[in-house]
Structure formats: structure tokens, C-alpha cells
Simulated assay, not measured.
Amino acid sequence: MSEDMGFIEGSYRLAGGEWQIVTAFKREGVTEAEIRDGLTWESGVTGMNVIFPVDATINGTVLLNMMSEHLAIETWREVRGPDSIVLR
């Protein structure tokens, strides 16, 4: 992952839960990063969108920090999970 991505998509799972999808992207007209949680994709899998202003930097660290704050998670453990495109 580069230092600044235009779009990130991945899967995550909270302890004891199902795999979920997260997408992060930049959008014109957004002045402050926002999270839209509780989304359901066509497949029935749930997750969230994290939307950033166009001048924001998006990378793995920034995204995990936003998710950590929103979900009240202190530590993430990276594991091999399902491909988010397949989950959708």
C-alpha cells in the first residue's frame, strides 16, 4: 500500500463476529472524514464506508486509526481473511 491511496477496500472481523467489508475513498465536497457504518452489500455482508476529503491522505495507518476510534478497538491483528470483492 502506498503512502496515499485514492481507494482502499478490505475485510475485517471483530472478535466473535462475521467478516465485514470496509471501503475508504475520497469525495469532492467532503470537508471532514466521515464514517457510514451499518451498510449491507448485495451479498448480505455488512460493513462501512470511510469517506475522506479529496486533500486527505489515505493509507492503512490512517484507515485503521479511523476504524479504531469509531469501533473502540485498541489493537488490530492482521490475518489472512476472505477477499472483500468475493464477500461483496
Rank of each mutant, 00 (worst) to 15 (best):
V45F: 00
W76I: 09
E42W: 07
V22Y: 00
D37P: 12
V50R: 05
M67K: 01
I73F: 01
G81P: 12
G10C: 11
T46A: 05
E74N: 03
G44F: 04
S43Q: 07
V45G: 00
M67H: 03
R80G: 12
E28D: 08
V30C: 12
G29Q: 10
S11L: 06
G60H: 07
M48H: 02
S2G: 14
G38W: 01
R27A: 14
I58R: 07
D37I: 11
E78R: 12
N49F: 13
K26S: 06
G17F: 01
M66I: 14
N59D: 15
L14C: 05
V62I: 14
S84C: 13
S11W: 02
T46N: 06
T61C: 13
D83K: 07
T23P: 01
S2T: 15
G17P: 00
I73S: 06
H70I: 09
T57R: 08
L71G: 08
G81F: 03
G17W: 00
L71Q: 09
E18W: 03
F25P: 03
I85H: 14
S68L: 03
G10A: 13
L14I: 03
I8A: 08
A56K: 12
E74I: 03
E34A: 09
R27I: 04
T46G: 00
F7R: 13
R27E: 15
S84V: 05
E74M: 01
T57F: 07
T57K: 08
I21N: 01
R27T: 12
L63N: 08
S11Y: 02
S84Y: 09
V79W: 06
M5T: 06
I85M: 12
E74Q: 02
T23W: 03
T31Y: 11
A72S: 14
